[in-house]
C-alpha cells in the first residue's frame, strides 16, 4: 500500500477517535426496537387469526399473511412513513418482513428518475438482492444436504 503507510496511519488517533464517539442510547434503542418489532409481529398474528377464520391454513395462510404485511410495508414506504418509523424504531422496523418490503420499494421509488427499466426495475434489488441470493443459495444447500441424508 502506498498512501496509508507512508503517512501516519495513527493507531493512537484512531483510539482517541473511538473514545470520543458519541454514546449509543442502548436502552432506548432496544426498547423501541422491541416495541415496534413486537407490534408488527402482533399485527401479523392478527392477520393470521383473521385469515384463519376465513378458511385459510398451512402454507397458504403463512403466504397470505406475509403478502399482506409486504403490501403495507410497500405502501407505508410509498407514503414516506416507513423511514420515519425506521428512524425511531431501528431494527424494530428493519427485521420484520415489512423491512424487507421497504428495502425493495425504497430504491424502486428513488431511482424512478432514471427511468422505469434502468432505474426502478434494475435498482429494485440493490439492498434486497443479497437476501434473495443468499436465501436461495443457503436454501438449496439445505435441500441438497437433506436429500443426501
Amino acid at each position: 500500500m502506498t498512501g496509508r503507510n507512508a503517512q501516519n496511519c495513527n493507531e493512537n488517533y484512531l483510539k482517541y477517535v473511538s473514545a470520543l464517539a458519541p454514546p449509543t442510547k442502548h436502552f432506548k434503542n432496544c426498547l423501541s426496537a422491541f416495541a415496534v418489532g413486537g407490534l408488527i409481529c402482533s399485527v401479523g398474528q392478527f392477520f393470521r387469526y383473521m385469515l384463519g377464520y376465513a378458511g385459510l391454513s398451512g402454507d397458504e395462510l403463512a403466504g397470505a399473511v406475509s403478502v399482506i404485511l409486504i403490501f403495507f410495508g410497500c405502501l407505508l414506504t410509498g407514503l414516506g412513513v416507513y423511514d420515519r418509523i425506521g428512524r425511531y424504531a431501528g431494527a424494530g422496523s428493519i427485521v420484520p418482513i415489512t423491512g424487507f418490503a421497504n428495502s425493495v420499494t425504497s430504491p424502486a421509488i428513488e431511482f424512478r428518475t432514471e427511468g422505469y427499466i434502468y432505474g426502478t426495475a434494475a435498482k429494485m434489488f440493490t439492498v434486497a438482492g443479497a437476501i434473495i441470493v443468499y436465501g436461495v443459495f443457503s436454501g438449496v444447500l439445505v435441500g441438497i444436504v437433506y436429500c443426501l441424508l
Partner: peptide, 9 residues
C-alpha cells in the same frame, strides 16, 4: 441509501 429506506443514522 435511498431516502425512503428505514435505517437509523
Amino acid at each position: 441509501y435511498p431516502l425512503e429506506l428505514g435505517c437509523t443514522r
